[in-house]
């Protein structure tokens, strides 16, 4: 309750909270209403249709696969780079270098990936000029492929710098003397990571993870550019249903997005309750 007594921190939050409640809350409520009404009648038909729809089932599984893969790989690479380089990353120029991909919007980065890695792209052309490739159709299919390689790699390029941005301060402020303690007690590098670094970075890392997860699962532009015809990411499917034809498929589009929102909300609640417990333990000094 101590936190609530510090009213001077609460009041300035009001605009932000209201903003979220009015705009995001209203939008979600409207989407929910649209998904459960068809021609003014209350019905769960849209959800029934969705679950029976082969395209949707394939799409949601594909989306989760792509999202989880890109989230975990980004987090992993981000942590590895930060661990190795946090000392050098204090340098301004090294930091700028690492953060270059963050300057580009996702859409632009997606296009860069196409221009570089498509079958008639820059790399394929280079290999052809060097005589290493007989024909550009022999170049591996890395964009618009059915496994989402193009999508996943675009997100990894974009999100790794974000992960570094988030956990770098944690690494810099970490009490590195703990590491020496583990070392003197004969602990390996892995034990240093497990006992000293991991408990400190885990809460921050999981926050970064949920942000990436939520973004990738529902973003439109990258899968639109780099996705295959089938299966589609759920955001594309939903966009198609929303805009196409006589608008009769709109309830399904809203239902699909409500399902995506629920997945994100549930994941966030689970993760936050986990990290909260950890935070409390850390603040009480029991590691």
């Amino acid at each position: 309750m101590k936190w609530f007594k510090q009213t001077k921190y609460v009041w300035p939050l009001v605009p932000a909270v209201l903003f979220v409640f009015i705009f995001v809350g209203y939008a979600i409520m409207m989407a929910l209403l649209e998904s459960i009404t068809i021609n003014g009648q209350w019905t769960l038909d849209a959800y029934k249709q969705l679950l029976e729809n082969q395209s949707f089932r394939d799409s949601i599984l594909f989306s989760l696969k792509v999202t989880l893969t890109s989230t975990f790989i980004s987090l992993f690479i981000g942590v590895v780079i930060t661990r190795w380089m946090y000392y050098y990353l204090r340098n301004y120029w090294v930091k700028v270098l690492i953060w270059i991909p963050m300057l580009f919007p996702h859409f632009v980065w997606g296009y860069i990936v196409i221009l570089l890695f498509s079958q008639s792209g820059w790399f394929s052309g280079l290999l052809y000029e060097l005589g290493l490739l007989e024909d550009f159709t022999h170049f591996p299919v890395l964009t618009q492929d059915q496994h989402g390689i193009g999508i996943i790699s675009t997100y990894i390029f974009k999100e790794v710098p974000f992960v570094i941005l988030i956990i770098l301060p944690v690494y810099i402020q970490m009490n590195h003397q703990y590491k020496h303690v583990v070392q003197t007690l004969g602990g390996s590098k892995w034990e240093i990571f497990k006992t000293v670094e991991w408990p400190t970075i885990f809460p921050v890392l999981s926050e970064a993870g949920i942000i990436i997860f939520a973004f990738v699962l529902s973003a439109f532009e990258v899968p639109f550019l780099l996705g295959a015809t089938y299966p589609k990411m759920v955001s594309i499917l939903s966009y198609d249903w929303f805009f196409q034809g006589d608008w009769s498929q709109r309830p399904m589009a809203f239902a699909a997005m409500i399902i995506v929102t629920s997945i994100i909300v549930i994941c966030s609640i689970v993760l936050f309750s986990m990290t909260n417990r950890l935070r409390i333990r850390v603040s009480k000094g029991e590691r």
Partner: peptide, 9 residues
Amino acid sequence: WRDGETYPA
């Protein structure tokens, strides 16, 4: 193109 595995969007 691409053995019909995907079509341009």
